[in-house]
Design a protein around this nucleic acid. Structure first.
Lengths: 188, 188
DNA sequence: ACGTCGATGTATCGAGCCGATACATCGGGT
DNA sequence: ACCCGATGTATCGGCTCGATACATCGACGT
């Protein structure tokens, strides 16, 4: 997950660790709290070892005096292999990417995703949320008596949130389909 | 987190591992997927070692009828120490319990929570969500141009969800306060 | 000129949790 | 007679978090 996010964010240009975290925070702020450094730095190291990212060569004009510099900034850029790997990850889109978080990350990078894959992910996500919605509805009807009022209120709130997300996804799907149609029309 | 949830669910009566998971799934279904067994069983073992839960003695009279006969199952019940620990956990309610998940779990056990603690948690949560909402609003205004349309749509959706949750919390808080007032009135 | 304070910056460690996996029994349908 | 899905206990590798440590920098007041 973090791997995908880092590759996606480095697609827009080289950054160092601190900046990667900031950019991801604003890009993914709607769906999750910032990734912690305890996750980020090990992942950056591992990705460098695998060759998906590389340390940016510092401009020689800028590297004058390392007087007291013990630990300088490390700027990473995405490599060709990294771009390929990113493309693979974003196209695979297995059933695990319909989870709240994974879906959000994939959605945030829809700008770099194939239109057909976008549609597949949106429909898969919709299915997932519909299942959750039905599960909650079922629980409310079946065990409504057994649960205390606060738990019930939680279920109601969750049910409404699921319902809203399904409607949101419906709009997005309709929009994608009309985009596909117009692109077909353009080709004619 | 799991610890708190298990203690809370065992408060209603002895259960074995599989049942604990099922009960938690229905009780917390609105806020998260089920806890995995990979988390549950180690936690059960640890809690038994700490004395918060204990293995239930099978009632010999109950073992005869086919309906209650169950093979090698391990049934756990909450102990006095366990109840005390649960009470401590649920009353502490530090800043970490305003996170999405932790808040949901605490809320699900509001039926066993002191009214003043309930109010504190609801207000803390509201504050947290308000901050998230303002952060998103800020991002939309400040960096609106820089982000692609999908990322923007994600932010809009997140912003609306945060807004709805704040309104939901406002209602809950108002309700709690009126409950407190009427209980004061009752005492007079 | 001096301190200090918040933002920037890199990094590690323990602990919690998940998903996959293994193994075993039970009740019901074919 | 046989299989299959639900029930049931348990472990393992891997990802992520929160806490912590350490270091630099510019801005601010005094």
């Amino acid at each position: 997950m973090l791997e995908l996010a880092v590759l996606g964010i480095l697609h827009d240009g080289p950054l160092h660790g601190y900046e990667v975290r900031k950019e991801l925070s604003t890009k993914l702020g709607a769906i999750r709290a910032a990734f912690s450094y305890g996750s980020l730095y090990p992942v950056l190291r591992r990705m460098r070892e695998l060759g998906w990212i590389a340390e940016e060569e510092p401009d020689p004009a800028q590297t004058a005096p390392p007087l007291t510099t013990r630990r300088g900034k490390v700027v990473y850029r995405i490599t060709a292999e990294g771009k390929e790997h990113f493309s693979t990850l974003i196209t695979k889109a297995g059933p695990d990417c319909y989870d709240d978080e994974a879906f959000g990350v994939h959605f945030a990078f829809f700008g770099r995703t194939d239109p057909l894959v976008r549609l597949r992910i949106l429909e898969g996500r919709r299915r997932r949320v519909e299942e959750k919605r039905e599960g909650l509805r079922e629980t409310l009807h079946r065990t409504g008596q057994r649960l205390d009022s606060y738990t019930l209120e939680l279920q109601r709130h969750g049910l409404e949130a699921a319902d809203r997300e399904v409607r949101w996804l419906n709009e997005l799907i309709a929009n994608e389909q009309s985009l596909d149609l117009s692109s077909i029309h353009d080709r004619e």
